[in-house]
Structure formats: C-alpha cells, structure tokens
C-alpha cells in the first residue's frame, strides 16, 4: 500500500512455553495503517492484539514476518537503532500510574522525552510545560505535582501529553481508556480525537470494547486466537460485519436500550481453549456454520467488499455469490 505508514506482512509471534510446548500468540497477520488513519484492533484476552503493538514498538521479538514503518523494514531492530523508531512511534498503556516514577514531578516526567531525544534543553523544555499541559486541557500548576496527587484521568492526560511532546508520527494506544470511569473515558476519547485532527496523527487503537474502538477509528481489525479474522470500516461495523466471531462480539455488547430482550447463546467454554491448537480455523470449535473444510485448513483474509475482508470459508462463499 503506497500511503501506508505502518505495514505488517505475515507477522507471527510464537512463545516457547517450555517442555516443547509452543504458543502461537500471533499467526500470520498482514495489515496496513495508512497515514492519518485511525485503525482499531479488537479482540478478547489472548487474541494477540497487544503482542502486535509490542512487536511494532520493539518491546518483544518478532518470530516471523515483517514490520515496515514508513517504507523501511524495522523488524527486530538492533538495540542501537530502536531509539530512532521510538522518536516516531509512541505508546500509551492501560494503567497510567505504572509508567510514572512515583517521586518524579509531572513537569520532569513531561519533559523527559524532549530532553532524551535532544529536541530541547532541560531549560527550554520546561518553558514549554504550560503549552504541553494546555494541549491535554490541564492547568500549568500541575507541573509541580507528584503522580499520586493526580486523578486517574489526569494521569492518563499527562501520559498522552508526554507521548505527543516529541511529535511522533504514530501513536499506539493499548486499552488506554479501559481502566477509567465512563465519564473520564469519554473526555479522554474526545481529547484524543481533537489531538488527532490537530496534529495529523496516525493512530493504532487497541481495545476489547467494541463500542469504544468503533467510536474513535476509521477501520477495525478483529482478532481471534492470534489470527486476523475480519477487517472493515468502523462506520459500517454493525451493519456489515460478516465473520461469525465478529457477529458474536456484537451480540455480546450491552446497550442501555437492551432491557433483557436480546438472546445470548450459551456456549461450552472449554471449546474456547481448543481452537488455538487446531490446524484449521481457530474459531471452528465455537462456530455454528463451520463445515468440513474449516477443521483442516485455516482460511485467509479475502476481500468481500470495499475495504472489507474476512477469513471465513462459509461466509466468503455467501458474500461473493
């Protein structure tokens, strides 16, 4: 893809669990994030969504495939070259408190990136503090506070301000609003959207909450047990999602308008763990429309519409007819 800022080609990650056991956390994922786009990755725990983010940020080793950033291969960069990438790719995690040093003031924390990457001297960086704080709608006096003196929402704002201080091209958000109360979550999401528009950011937004991810992304990639199973435009998620797993995720979302009416199929939970070990489609043990082919071969992502692709033998057939 010409305008891709980030491109994953057949990316895989296998963890060695000891005793000859291997866990395929990410299986052959190909995916591109266009410049200025906000791409969401959704899935449940263990689906590999965070592992992808960690591989892109060079926090864990890639075991197969390639990562291209701005057209250059950045797969498993040697230690000395990671800094260049971190200058352009920043990450925000779920728990803001864990990234602070408890005795470091907000001001010191916020200016660390600017100083570390040689963008500004310590003194010059401190002069920019009011501006950096204002960008995330915080008052300048917060610079003198310690992290535990801030609320969770304020902490996450400071973490976002630091990530943006060095003007990265790509911002990766891994469950960045999941631990926040709903009212704070909405404020942070709105803030991110404002900053994205103002700074022309490219975003990779990872989360388990379909409604949240849908609200802040252009496209959504759905993962299941390490595999990418569907990719589609966010604004058409509810209407056009076709993969049986994406449909199941959608059926599992509770809206305030639901009032006990919707039917939720009850599954045998032991089937969920089985899928990962199979040669075929990982969703096959849970799938109502699986056929013989699904247990032998793993379907690959195939286009079924504009910007819409799914990895499902049964649905691919239907959609293309």
């Amino acid at each position: 893809m010409d305008d891709a800022l980030l491109e994953l080609r057949g990316l895989s990650k296998t963890f060695d669990m000891g005793k000859g056991e291997r866990l395929r956390a990410v299986r052959d994922v190909s995916l591109a994030v266009r410049r200025g786009e906000s791409l969401g990755i959704v899935g449940e725990s263990g689906c590999g969504k965070s592992t992808i983010a960690r591989m892109v940020a060079q926090l864990t080793e890639v075991t197969g495939g390639q990562i291209l950033f701005d057209g250059r291969d950045v797969t498993n960069l040697p230690r000395g070259r990671r800094r260049e990438l971190w200058r352009r790719v920043q990450m925000v995690f779920q728990d803001p408190y864990s990234v602070f040093s408890p005795r470091m003031t907000v001001g010191d924390f916020l200016t660390e990136g600017l100083v570390h990457f040689g963008i500004a001297s310590r003194a010059k960086a401190r002069e920019r503090l009011p501006e950096l704080l204002a960008r995330v709608e915080l008052p300048p006096e917060l610079a003198e506070r310690l992290p535990h003196q801030l609320s969770g929402g304020q902490q996450q704002r400071v973490v976002i301000a630091r990530a943006l201080s060095i003007q990265p091209d790509l911002l990766i958000l891994d469950e960045a609003t999941s631990a926040l109360d709903v009212s704070v979550q909405r404020q942070i999401l709105k803030l991110l959207m404002r900053l994205k528009a103002e700074l022309g950011l490219t975003m990779l937004f990872i989360g388990h909450d379909l409604a949240v991810v849908r609200s802040v992304t252009d496209r959504i990639a759905v993962m299941y047990a390490g595999s990418l199973v569907e990719q589609l435009p966010s604004d058409r998620l509810v209407e056009t999602a076709a993969h049986p797993y994406t449909r199941r995720l959608l059926d599992s979302v509770f809206s305030t308008g639901d009032r006990g009416r919707k039917q939720i199929a009850i599954e045998d939970l032991s089937l969920i763990e089985k899928g990962r070990q199979l040669a075929g489609c990982p969703y096959q043990p849970r799938c109502a429309i699986a056929t013989g082919i699904c247990s032998g071969t793993c379907p690959s992502l195939t286009a079924v519409g504009e910007n819409h692709s799914i990895a499902c033998f049964a649905r691919q057939g239907e959609e293309l007819q």
């Binding site: 709903v182 979550q185 909405r186 409604a211 609200s215 998620l237 809206s255 305030t256």
Partner: peptide, 19 residues
C-alpha cells in the same frame, strides 16, 4: 443524565470525524 450521556454505545454517533 451525565453518566448515561458518557456511555459510549455501539450505535452512537462516532467521536471521530469521517474523512
């Protein structure tokens, strides 16, 4: 009212600008 308005729902208007 504030709490209900803050909930991000699957059929809400999205927060991102379509482009």
């Amino acid at each position: 009212r504030g709490l209900l308005e803050a909930v991000v729902e699957i059929d809400d208007e999205r927060l991102i600008a379509n482009h």
